[in-house]
Write a protein that binds this DNA or RNA. Sequence first.
DNA 1: ATCTTCCTGTCAAGCAGATGACAGACAGGA
DNA 2: TCCTGTCTGTCATCTGCTTGACAGGAAGAT
Lengths: 217, 217
Amino acid sequence: MIHILVVDDEKPICDLIDINLSTAGYHCRCVQDGLAAIDLIEKENFDLILLDIMLPGADGFDIMEYIRPLKVPVIFISAKSDVKDKVKGLKLGAEDYLVKPFDALELVARVEVVLRRFHKTETILSAGDVTVDTEARKVMRKGVPVVLTNKEYGLLVLFIQNKNVALFKERLYEKVWQDEYIADSRTLELHVQRLRRKMGWEKNLVAVYKVGYRLEI
Amino acid sequence: MIHILVVDDEKPICDLIDINLSTAGYHCRCVQDGLAAIDLIEKENFDLILLDIMLPGADGFDIMEYIRPLKVPVIFISAKSDVKDKVKGLKLGAEDYLVKPFDALELVARVEVVLRRFHKTETILSAGDVTVDTEARKVMRKGVPVVLTNKEYGLLVLFIQNKNVALFKERLYEKVWQDEYIADSRTLELHVQRLRRKMGWEKNLVAVYKVGYRLEI
DNA sequence: ATCTTCCTGTCAAGCAGATGACAGACAGGA
DNA sequence: TCCTGTCTGTCATCTGCTTGACAGGAAGAT
């Protein structure tokens, strides 16, 4: 299930977006206040954020700067149609910028473009001789099925979605365990080890000292 | 150098786009005909394609379907502002859809969003024969990977981001160690020394007496 | 030039902390 | 009950960081 956060101070607009995205099969959460939004974003793992610019509490640009390190994709949705605002939003790292009033179908289409870009909707992932069918939750290596536990599977998907990117331990832990990372526990390392063996990734899944791990393909 | 293909039957619009993207540092190639575009796309490796919809030869949607397997990112640029067209274009796999007439700055900003997403830019730093992929935390010299420790890596990034600028020891220490600099310790100098050797920078990374270091490229 | 003083480069060694490997404990489901 | 998946604890090993000592070099004063 894909979780989308809608941040807009006008309740009717939130509801409108909610209805359309829910119909398209996504789960929405709405907030009207900027500071509340930051709180929520840090606590929960959203797949996408729709962000209004003029907000009480903290404005959209502030929120964007604040949450940028989290790498959650953002689409700005604003009544401000000035090119300067659009450019500012996009330069801040947003994936798109929609001007209100917008057509609901276009919104859904653009949301799906972003989700597609982030490989959230692709059901077949692959890396080297490994392929993953996320819908069937099946993993194949050289055409041979591999049985993975839940945690191993979660790690695998994250690594494949981030090939050749160094992933921080904190991020891995938060995504797979949805919990705070405890530094003096061997848990994460243990599961990485098992994944390495099962996938034959002894050489590919390398430890980045003091940082985390990286899958090299 | 990033190569962008512009497909539009109106020469003045091609020129306008060309001027703006060239100014932003990209290389443009223009074609007016749909079939010619398909030819070019198959022969050359473009990083991005700007595609008009109404074209002689083959229309933009046809081209899109045809080249989709190549996975080259596409932005539609069309006078057709109907939501149905937008949705069709985006569903076909395009990364964005701009309606003519558009603002040149917005075009450049949106082009950069797409390039950013496809890792064509921004995460790669370079200085001389050294390149750094900040996302993968990987360093290459003359195409050969170099293994650096964390502190060495931190220093390297700082130096490359400040080519030909003298950096104070205090600043280096604070950035890499996030700590107060202790003058009577050889720590910083030692790491600089190791970095010099690993990168072959014996001549380039010079000590600035009583101040710090400067990377000369 | 010569001297003094401070700064930088170099080496070896030691230490703290991170990783890998393994055994065993624990909980929940068949 | 057993079995599977997950977590904890321990130990050996390895890596990266720091320290201390010392030689050589630069800058400024004489």
